[in-house]
Nucleic acid binder design. Structure first.
Lengths: 129, 129, 129, 129
DNA sequence: GTGGTCTAGACCACC
DNA sequence: GTGGTCTAGACCACG
C-alpha cells in the first residue's frame, strides 16, 4: 500500500480500517487479520500497526480479545454513527479545500462532475483498474 | 492561524500561500509580508516560514529579492498552470477519499450538493460569516 | 572536511554527494551514512546535512526510507542524466571563468594541458597523494 | 549583470573588476566609474559595491584618491602577478571540479575541447553574442 | 537507531 | 529593515 508521507502512517492505517468497514470488507463483529499479517499486507512495521489499532480500540471501533485477536465492534449503531461522521468530515474537508481555492459552490459541483466523467473515460480505456 | 498537527506546518503554510494567490489576496508580483512578520502572524518559528517559502521559491511560485523581500512571481502563465494543478489535485483527493468510503460517483455528487445546500442554510442563520 | 565559506555549506554537501556518486563511492541503491553520522564526519550541524539531503531527495537523486535511512536512487538512467548535467555545468563554469580572464579558446586548452602536466610532476614527487 | 546567488555579490564584483583588468577594459592607472555609477551598472546597492572596492583597495589592486575617485594601481608588476595568480587559481578550481566528477586528465582535456567546439557552433548560429 | 519537523537564537549579505 | 544560513537542542514517527 502507498502512503502519503505528509501524514502519519498510523493515521492512514486507521483510515484504511474505516474504509474496509464502510465497504463491507470488514463486517460488524468480524475478526481482523493478525497484527503481523496486517503489517506484512501494508508493508509497514508491526509497531505502527499496533499504534493504529490501539487508537481504534480506545475509541471503541475495535474490540480486542486477549489471545483471540482484534474484532470490529458489533455495535451497529456505533458503526452507523461512525459512517455518518466520516462522510460528513470528508465532505467538509473537500468543500473547504476547493472553496479555499476560490471556487464557488456551483463551480465545485460542476468541476467535480467533470472530473468524475473524465475519470470514467480514462478508467474505461485502462485494462487495469 | 490554526494548524492541523497531522501534517507538517511548513506544508500548510505553502497551502496558505497558494490559497491567497488563488483568492487574489496575493496578486502576481505582489510583495509578501516580511518573513519575521509572517512568523508572528502565523505564530510559528521564522525558520518554519522560511522552509515553506524556500520550497515555493525553488518551484518558481515566489521570487526572492535579497534585502527587499519575497514576491509572487509575475509569470501569469506559471500561476495559471499552478492553479489548474492545485484544483485537479484537490478534486482527485476529495474524490478518492469519498470513493474510499464506498460512495458511488452519483452519491458523491448528490451528497456534496446536499452538504452545500445545508451549509448555505446554516450560513444564512449565522450573523458571523 | 574543509568548506569554502563563500558558498553555503549545505550546497557543498550536495556537491559532495554528487562527487561520491560519480566516483562510485556511492553506488546506485547504496545506503548513505546516518544523518547524524554524516554531521559528525563533516563536522557540521545535523540540520545542515538534513537540508542538503532534503534537496537531493526532492530532486529524486536520493530516496528516504523512514526509520531505515537515506539511499541513492536505483534509477540508473536518472543518475546518468545527472552525471551528464553535472559535467556540462562544470565545463561551462570553468570555460566562462577562464574566458572571463581574457583567455582565448586555444589558450584555455593549452594552459589546462600545461597545468595538468605540471601537476603530475608535483604528484610524482610527493609521497602522499 | 547577473549574479550567482550562491556566492556573495561583493565577491563577484571583485571578480568583475579583475576581469576588466585582465581584458584591458581597465588599464593600469585607469579611473573607475564613480561608485554610484557602478552600482547602477551592476544593478546593485552602493554599499555592496563599496564593500568590494574596499577589499580591492586593501589588497593594493586599487588605490583610492580622496575626492578624485578610485584608480587601478599603476604597479604593473603587481598586476602581472595578480593575473598569474587568478589564472592558476581558476585552472586549479576547474581541474579539481572536473577531476572530482571522476574524470581522468585526458577526459578533462578532450571534453573541454569538445565543449569549446560545440560552443563555437552555437555561437555562429546565433546573431546575438 | 533513523529520518523529519520545529524552535530559539545568532550571524551574514544586501538594500 | 529584509531574506539566507547555521547551530543547538528537543520531540515525533517509524523500524
Amino acid at each position: 500500500m502507498k502512503f502519503d508521507d505528509k501524514v502519519p502512517i498510523y493515521y492512514q492505517i486507521k483510515q484504511h480500517v474505516y474504509h474496509e468497514m464502510m465497504t463491507g470488507a470488514l463486517q460488524p463483529g468480524a475478526k481482523l487479520p493478525a497484527v503481523r499479517q496486517l503489517a506484512l499486507d501494508l508493508t509497514v512495521n508491526v509497531n505502527t500497526v499496533q499504534r493504529a489499532l490501539s487508537e481504534l480500540i480506545a475509541e471503541g471501533t475495535l474490540v480486542s480479545q486477549r489471545g483471540k485477536g482484534n474484532f470490529v465492534t458489533s455495535d451497529q449503531e456505533l458503526i452507523a454513527r461512525l459512517k455518518e461522521t466520516l462522510i460528513m468530515t470528508q465532505l467538509a474537508v473537500a468543500y473547504d479545500q476547493l472553496h479555499g481555492l476560490n471556487m464557488s459552490d456551483d463551480e465545485i459541483i460542476t468541476s467535480m462532475q467533470r472530473y468524475i466523467k473524465q475519470r470514467e473515460v480514462q478508467t474505461d480505456d485502462s485494462i487495469n483498474d
